[in-house]
Amino acid sequence: MSSFPAFLKSQLFYTPRDPLSTDPAFAAGKTIIVTGANTGLGLEATKCFVRGGAQTVIIACRNLSKGEAAKHSIEESENSKGVLQVWELDLSSYASVKAFAKRCETIPRLDSVVLNAGIATGRFQRVEGHEAHIAVNVISTFMLGLLLLPILRRSAATTGSRPFLTIVTSEMHFWTTLPQKKSPNIFAALDQEKGADMMDRYNVSKLLQILVVRHLTRVVIGDRFRYPVVVNCVTPGLCRSELVKDMGLTPVVFKKLLGRTVEMGGRALVNAAGGLVGKESAGEYIADDRISEPSPLVRSEEGAELAKRVWEELVPILERECPGIVAGIAV
């Protein structure tokens, strides 16, 4: 959304398509992981995958009891048993991320991963030595994604299909200039509590996600259209989820007035992760069920240089926790 009028037009006049209307069995026989799937958009996306005939959908969430409650609710509403599994995943813990990825090595096939879990808060907090938005939304998200890439590649080789790794981002990335880009080290600057603009931090984390996806798919991978896994990112638009409940009254009221339903947002996630948009979305930013242009900053020469810097700062952080993680990207 390059402007507020464009944002309003999307919110008020576009409804994400139901993938079942295109293909009622779009997920038949597939194994899918949805993070943050016990509530909100993740829960709705999980329901949609179940309706589409998925063989296995893994609900990845921090709280197992809430995950089990979501599982039972979906089983009852969709009259579907034996499809859902609940696995523990806490993105605020690198150990949890690594344990989850290790467990995924036991999966016979993996067709789609929707990295939906994230945080938005107005408070400065540290997680694993980093500011929480950066640790959860960026570092842990890409740690998990890169650890799962070899598993997705293996599945592509054995099934002959092309799996999807989809990062759920936000149109809010348009609304930050990334002030920390002036610092010698962006991640170090973001870790400083003094002077931190926490109302901008969620926006920054979403911008960093898109920059990393673009550098990964355009430079590190090389030919993103031939790579055996489709890596993309999607904004579901502003939805009436609980994501901003800790950020004060204004964002909450804004969501109530303009937000899409969580069901609509869930559809957007599913469409990006293998439904409507398709394989040509590799390396792209998806909005309103189509490949869209990210912010002018992302598309600029400065954005390409920023993406390179962010990647080069992120890799040592990931390698310290998971030696050899980047090597797993190669075909």
Score class of each variant (00 low, 15 high):
residue 65 S to I: 12
residue 214 R to L: 14
residue 198 M to H: 04
residue 122 G to F: 03
residue 89 L to E: 08
residue 51 R to K: 13
residue 88 E to V: 08
residue 264 M to Y: 15
residue 197 D to Q: 12
residue 148 L to S: 01
residue 31 T to F: 11
residue 7 F to W: 14
residue 90 D to K: 07
residue 44 E to A: 08
residue 130 H to G: 03
residue 43 L to D: 02
residue 169 T to L: 06
residue 208 L to C: 01
residue 235 T to P: 09
residue 75 E to F: 11
residue 233 C to M: 12
residue 273 A to R: 09
residue 129 G to P: 05
residue 76 E to G: 11
residue 193 E to T: 07
residue 78 E to T: 06
residue 137 N to M: 12
residue 91 L to G: 06
residue 277 V to S: 04
residue 124 F to G: 08
residue 136 V to A: 06
residue 246 D to N: 10
residue 234 V to G: 04
residue 196 A to G: 03
residue 302 E to R: 13
residue 91 L to F: 09
residue 285 Y to L: 02
residue 281 S to L: 01
residue 10 S to G: 14
residue 116 N to L: 11
residue 149 L to K: 00
residue 85 Q to W: 10
residue 209 Q to W: 01
residue 290 R to P: 06
residue 250 T to R: 15
residue 256 K to R: 15
residue 218 R to C: 12
residue 279 K to V: 12
residue 103 R to P: 00
residue 122 G to L: 02
residue 85 Q to L: 09
residue 226 R to N: 11
residue 70 A to C: 06
residue 38 N to A: 11
residue 256 K to S: 15
residue 152 L to Y: 03
residue 324 G to H: 02
residue 11 Q to P: 07
residue 252 V to S: 09
residue 155 S to G: 15
residue 49 F to H: 04
residue 132 A to H: 08
residue 226 R to L: 10
residue 137 N to D: 13
residue 133 H to F: 04
residue 138 V to K: 07
residue 246 D to G: 13
residue 184 P to R: 07
residue 48 C to S: 10
residue 267 R to K: 12
residue 310 V to K: 05
residue 263 E to Y: 12
residue 263 E to H: 09
residue 207 L to I: 04
residue 58 I to K: 00
residue 46 T to R: 02
residue 3 S to G: 10
residue 37 A to H: 03
residue 245 K to W: 13
residue 43 L to V: 00
residue 185 N to Q: 15
residue 324 G to D: 09
residue 211 L to Y: 04
residue 278 G to H: 09
residue 55 Q to A: 15
residue 270 V to E: 07
residue 231 V to D: 00
residue 58 I to Y: 00
residue 315 V to H: 10
residue 113 V to N: 00
residue 71 K to Y: 01
residue 228 P to R: 02
residue 303 G to C: 00
residue 139 I to Q: 04
residue 187 F to H: 05
residue 319 E to G: 10
residue 194 K to R: 15
residue 79 N to C: 11
residue 3 S to L: 10
residue 98 K to N: 15
residue 242 E to P: 10
residue 79 N to Y: 13
residue 318 L to W: 06
residue 198 M to Q: 10
residue 309 R to H: 13
residue 322 C to Q: 14
residue 11 Q to G: 13
residue 149 L to R: 00
residue 81 K to W: 12
residue 289 D to Q: 09
residue 297 L to E: 07
residue 286 I to E: 04
residue 296 P to C: 08
residue 44 E to D: 14
residue 44 E to V: 05
residue 117 A to D: 01
residue 203 N to G: 07
residue 323 P to D: 02
residue 311 W to D: 02
residue 184 P to F: 05
residue 119 I to N: 04
